[in-house]
Protein backbone atom coordinates (compact mmCIF):
# COMPACT_ATOMS: atom_id res chain seq x y z
CA UNK A 1 0.00 0.00 0.00
CA UNK A 2 2.90 2.32 0.85
CA UNK A 3 4.36 1.63 -2.59
CA UNK A 4 1.02 2.55 -4.18
CA UNK A 5 0.78 5.80 -2.28
CA UNK A 6 4.41 6.54 -3.07
CA UNK A 7 3.72 5.90 -6.75
CA UNK A 8 0.80 8.36 -6.75
CA UNK A 9 3.02 10.94 -5.10
CA UNK A 10 5.79 10.41 -7.64
CA UNK A 11 3.23 10.59 -10.46
CA UNK A 12 1.97 14.03 -9.34
CA UNK A 13 5.58 15.22 -9.13
CA UNK A 14 6.28 14.00 -12.65
CA UNK A 15 3.26 15.80 -14.06
CA UNK A 16 4.06 19.11 -12.45
CA UNK A 17 7.80 18.87 -13.04
CA UNK A 18 7.02 19.13 -16.77
CA UNK A 19 9.17 16.14 -17.56
CA UNK A 20 10.04 16.46 -21.30
CA UNK A 21 9.55 12.79 -22.07
CA UNK A 22 6.14 12.68 -20.42
CA UNK A 23 4.98 15.81 -22.15
CA UNK A 24 6.37 14.65 -25.45
CA UNK A 25 4.22 11.53 -25.09
CA UNK A 26 1.16 13.60 -24.20
CA UNK A 27 1.65 15.94 -27.15
CA UNK A 28 2.14 13.09 -29.60
CA UNK A 29 -0.98 11.42 -28.24
CA UNK A 30 -2.98 14.59 -28.80
CA UNK A 31 -1.56 15.06 -32.28
CA UNK A 32 -2.24 11.49 -33.43
CA UNK A 33 -5.68 11.38 -31.83
CA UNK A 34 -6.83 14.75 -33.10
CA UNK A 35 -5.62 13.99 -36.61
CA UNK A 36 -7.18 10.53 -36.79
CA UNK A 37 -10.53 11.54 -35.29
CA UNK A 38 -10.56 14.79 -37.28
CA UNK A 39 -10.05 13.05 -40.60
CA UNK A 40 -12.48 10.29 -39.62
CA UNK A 41 -15.07 12.96 -38.79
CA UNK A 42 -14.52 14.81 -42.07
CA UNK A 43 -15.19 11.57 -43.92
CA UNK A 44 -17.59 9.86 -41.55
CA UNK A 45 -20.10 12.64 -40.88
CA UNK A 46 -20.92 13.39 -44.54
CA UNK A 47 -20.96 9.67 -45.32
CA UNK A 48 -23.33 9.11 -42.40
CA UNK A 49 -25.59 11.94 -43.50
CA UNK A 50 -25.74 10.67 -47.07
CA UNK A 51 -26.45 7.08 -46.07
CA UNK A 52 -28.87 8.06 -43.31
CA UNK A 53 -30.92 10.39 -45.48
CA UNK A 54 -31.20 8.48 -48.73
CA UNK A 55 -32.76 5.23 -49.84
CA UNK A 56 -30.66 3.41 -52.41
CA UNK A 57 -29.80 -0.07 -53.53
CA UNK A 58 -27.39 -1.68 -51.11
CA UNK A 59 -28.13 0.70 -48.25
CA UNK A 60 -29.04 -2.12 -45.89
CA UNK A 61 -25.78 -3.91 -46.59
CA UNK A 62 -23.72 -0.75 -46.07
CA UNK A 63 -25.44 -0.02 -42.76
CA UNK A 64 -24.87 -3.59 -41.57
CA UNK A 65 -21.21 -3.41 -42.57
CA UNK A 66 -20.77 -0.11 -40.77
CA UNK A 67 -22.35 -1.53 -37.62
CA UNK A 68 -20.09 -4.57 -37.88
CA UNK A 69 -16.99 -2.43 -38.19
CA UNK A 70 -18.06 -0.30 -35.26
CA UNK A 71 -17.06 -3.30 -33.19
CA UNK A 72 -13.88 -4.00 -35.14
CA UNK A 73 -11.21 -5.39 -32.81
CA UNK A 74 -8.54 -2.68 -32.75
CA UNK A 75 -5.70 -5.15 -33.06
CA UNK A 76 -7.25 -6.38 -36.33
CA UNK A 77 -7.28 -2.80 -37.61
CA UNK A 78 -3.63 -2.58 -36.59
CA UNK A 79 -2.85 -5.86 -38.31
CA UNK A 80 -4.48 -4.82 -41.59
CA UNK A 81 -2.65 -1.48 -41.49
CA UNK A 82 0.60 -3.26 -40.71
CA UNK A 83 0.22 -5.65 -43.63
CA UNK A 84 -0.51 -2.82 -46.05
CA UNK A 85 2.34 -0.64 -44.85
CA UNK A 86 4.95 -3.34 -44.36
CA UNK A 87 7.86 -3.55 -46.78
CA UNK A 88 6.20 -6.34 -48.72
CA UNK A 89 2.77 -4.70 -48.62
CA UNK A 90 1.15 -2.68 -51.40
CA UNK A 91 2.03 0.60 -49.68
CA UNK A 92 5.42 -0.50 -48.39
CA UNK A 93 7.26 1.93 -50.64
CA UNK A 94 5.77 4.83 -48.67
CA UNK A 95 7.87 3.81 -45.62
CA UNK A 96 5.10 4.69 -43.22
CA UNK A 97 5.38 1.77 -40.85
CA UNK A 98 6.49 2.68 -37.32
CA UNK A 99 5.65 6.34 -37.85
CA UNK A 100 2.94 8.54 -36.33
CA UNK A 101 1.26 8.55 -39.75
CA UNK A 102 0.78 4.80 -39.57
CA UNK A 103 -0.79 5.25 -36.14
CA UNK A 104 -3.16 7.90 -37.52
CA UNK A 105 -4.20 5.52 -40.32
CA UNK A 106 -4.81 2.62 -37.93
CA UNK A 107 -6.83 4.80 -35.55
CA UNK A 108 -8.83 6.18 -38.44
CA UNK A 109 -9.85 2.65 -39.45
CA UNK A 110 -11.19 2.13 -35.94
CA UNK A 111 -12.87 5.51 -35.47
CA UNK A 112 -14.38 6.10 -38.92
CA UNK A 113 -17.12 3.42 -38.68
CA UNK A 114 -18.03 4.62 -35.18
CA UNK A 115 -18.52 8.21 -36.32
CA UNK A 116 -20.29 7.16 -39.52
CA UNK A 117 -22.57 4.69 -37.72
CA UNK A 118 -23.58 7.16 -35.03
CA UNK A 119 -24.12 9.86 -37.66
CA UNK A 120 -26.43 7.53 -39.60
CA UNK A 121 -28.47 6.95 -36.44
CA UNK A 122 -28.59 10.68 -35.71
CA UNK A 123 -29.81 11.57 -39.18
CA UNK A 124 -32.26 8.69 -39.60
CA UNK A 125 -34.58 10.08 -36.93
CA UNK A 126 -34.87 13.53 -38.46
CA UNK A 127 -34.25 13.45 -42.17
CA UNK A 128 -37.76 12.55 -43.35
CA UNK A 129 -39.53 15.32 -41.46
CA UNK A 130 -36.79 17.87 -42.26
CA UNK A 131 -36.83 16.92 -45.92
CA UNK A 132 -40.63 17.10 -46.22
CA UNK A 133 -40.76 20.40 -44.34
CA UNK A 134 -38.10 21.87 -46.61
CA UNK A 135 -39.86 20.54 -49.71
CA UNK A 136 -43.03 22.13 -48.42
CA UNK A 137 -41.27 25.48 -48.28
CA UNK A 138 -39.52 25.14 -51.63
CA UNK A 139 -36.03 25.10 -50.15
CA UNK A 140 -33.10 23.85 -52.22
CA UNK A 141 -31.37 20.53 -51.66
CA UNK A 142 -28.28 22.29 -50.29
CA UNK A 143 -30.34 24.33 -47.88
CA UNK A 144 -32.15 21.18 -46.79
CA UNK A 145 -28.85 19.45 -46.04
CA UNK A 146 -27.61 22.47 -44.09
CA UNK A 147 -30.77 22.45 -42.00
CA UNK A 148 -30.52 18.70 -41.48
CA UNK A 149 -26.96 19.12 -40.23
CA UNK A 150 -28.11 21.94 -37.98
CA UNK A 151 -30.93 19.83 -36.52
CA UNK A 152 -28.63 16.88 -35.92
CA UNK A 153 -25.67 18.91 -34.68
CA UNK A 154 -25.79 17.67 -31.09
CA UNK A 155 -25.91 13.94 -31.80
CA UNK A 156 -23.33 14.34 -34.57
CA UNK A 157 -21.01 16.24 -32.25
CA UNK A 158 -21.50 13.49 -29.69
CA UNK A 159 -20.58 10.97 -32.39
CA UNK A 160 -17.35 12.84 -33.15
CA UNK A 161 -16.46 13.09 -29.47
CA UNK A 162 -17.21 9.39 -29.03
CA UNK A 163 -14.81 8.71 -31.89
CA UNK A 164 -12.19 10.89 -30.27
CA UNK A 165 -12.66 9.13 -26.95
CA UNK A 166 -12.18 5.79 -28.66
CA UNK A 167 -9.05 6.95 -30.44
CA UNK A 168 -7.34 8.33 -27.37
CA UNK A 169 -7.83 5.06 -25.51
CA UNK A 170 -6.45 2.92 -28.32
CA UNK A 171 -3.42 0.71 -27.53
CA UNK A 172 -3.36 -2.49 -29.62
CA UNK A 173 -3.37 -1.02 -33.11
CA UNK A 174 -0.98 1.82 -32.36
CA UNK A 175 1.41 -0.59 -30.68
CA UNK A 176 1.47 -2.79 -33.79
CA UNK A 177 1.98 -0.09 -36.40
CA UNK A 178 3.85 2.43 -34.26
CA UNK A 179 6.22 0.16 -32.46
CA UNK A 180 6.18 2.26 -29.29
CA UNK A 181 9.49 3.90 -30.20
CA UNK A 182 10.76 6.36 -27.61
CA UNK A 183 10.45 10.01 -28.64
CA UNK A 184 8.95 8.91 -31.96
CA UNK A 185 5.82 6.78 -31.75
CA UNK A 186 5.25 6.39 -28.03
CA UNK A 187 1.81 7.53 -26.93
CA UNK A 188 0.17 7.49 -23.51
CA UNK A 189 -1.44 4.06 -23.80
CA UNK A 190 1.62 2.28 -25.17
CA UNK A 191 3.85 4.05 -22.66
CA UNK A 192 1.63 2.88 -19.79
CA UNK A 193 2.00 -0.70 -21.00
CA UNK A 194 5.76 -0.36 -21.24
CA UNK A 195 6.30 1.42 -17.91
CA UNK A 196 4.03 -1.02 -16.07
CA UNK A 197 6.01 -3.90 -17.51
CA UNK A 198 9.24 -2.27 -16.32
CA UNK A 199 7.83 -1.68 -12.86
CA UNK A 200 7.92 2.11 -13.20
CA UNK A 201 4.53 2.59 -11.60
CA UNK A 202 5.03 6.29 -10.97
CA UNK A 203 5.47 7.04 -14.67
CA UNK A 204 2.63 4.69 -15.63
CA UNK A 205 0.34 6.29 -13.06
CA UNK A 206 1.29 9.81 -14.16
CA UNK A 207 0.30 8.95 -17.71
CA UNK A 208 -2.82 7.15 -16.51
CA UNK A 209 -3.92 10.23 -14.57
CA UNK A 210 -3.43 12.39 -17.67
CA UNK A 211 -5.38 9.89 -19.80
CA UNK A 212 -8.26 9.76 -17.34
CA UNK A 213 -8.28 13.55 -17.14
CA UNK A 214 -8.48 13.81 -20.91
CA UNK A 215 -11.31 11.26 -21.01
CA UNK A 216 -13.10 13.13 -18.25
CA UNK A 217 -12.87 16.36 -20.23
CA UNK A 218 -14.42 14.62 -23.27
CA UNK A 219 -17.22 13.18 -21.20
CA UNK A 220 -17.84 16.52 -19.50
CA UNK A 221 -18.19 18.18 -22.90
CA UNK A 222 -20.56 15.43 -24.09
CA UNK A 223 -22.63 15.78 -20.94
CA UNK A 224 -22.78 19.55 -21.39
CA UNK A 225 -23.92 19.07 -24.99
CA UNK A 226 -26.69 16.74 -23.89
CA UNK A 227 -27.78 19.19 -21.20
CA UNK A 228 -27.84 22.05 -23.70
CA UNK A 229 -29.96 19.96 -26.02
CA UNK A 230 -32.45 19.26 -23.23
CA UNK A 231 -32.74 22.96 -22.38
Amino acid sequence: MNDLVKSFYEAWNLIFSFDPEIYGIILLTLKVTLLSSGIAALLGVPAGIIVGSRNFFGKGLIVRLVHTFMGLPPVVAGLVTYIFLSRKGPLGSLNLLFTPTAMVIAQMLIVFPIIMGLSISAVKLKYKVVEETCMGLGLSRVHTLRLLLHECRYPILSAVLAGYGRAIAEVGAVMLVGGNIQYHTRVITTAIMLETGKGNYDKALALGIVLITMSFIINAIMYRIQEEKRE
Partner: peptide, 10 residues
Protein backbone atom coordinates in the same frame (compact mmCIF):
# COMPACT_ATOMS: atom_id res chain seq x y z
CA UNK B 1 -46.07 25.51 -50.26
CA UNK B 2 -47.28 22.66 -48.11
CA UNK B 3 -48.11 22.79 -44.42
CA UNK B 4 -47.72 19.32 -42.92
CA UNK B 5 -50.34 17.86 -40.62
CA UNK B 6 -47.82 17.88 -37.78
CA UNK B 7 -45.66 20.88 -38.64
CA UNK B 8 -41.99 20.78 -37.77
CA UNK B 9 -40.17 23.83 -36.48
CA UNK B 10 -36.40 23.96 -36.66
Amino acid sequence: AFLLQMPYLF
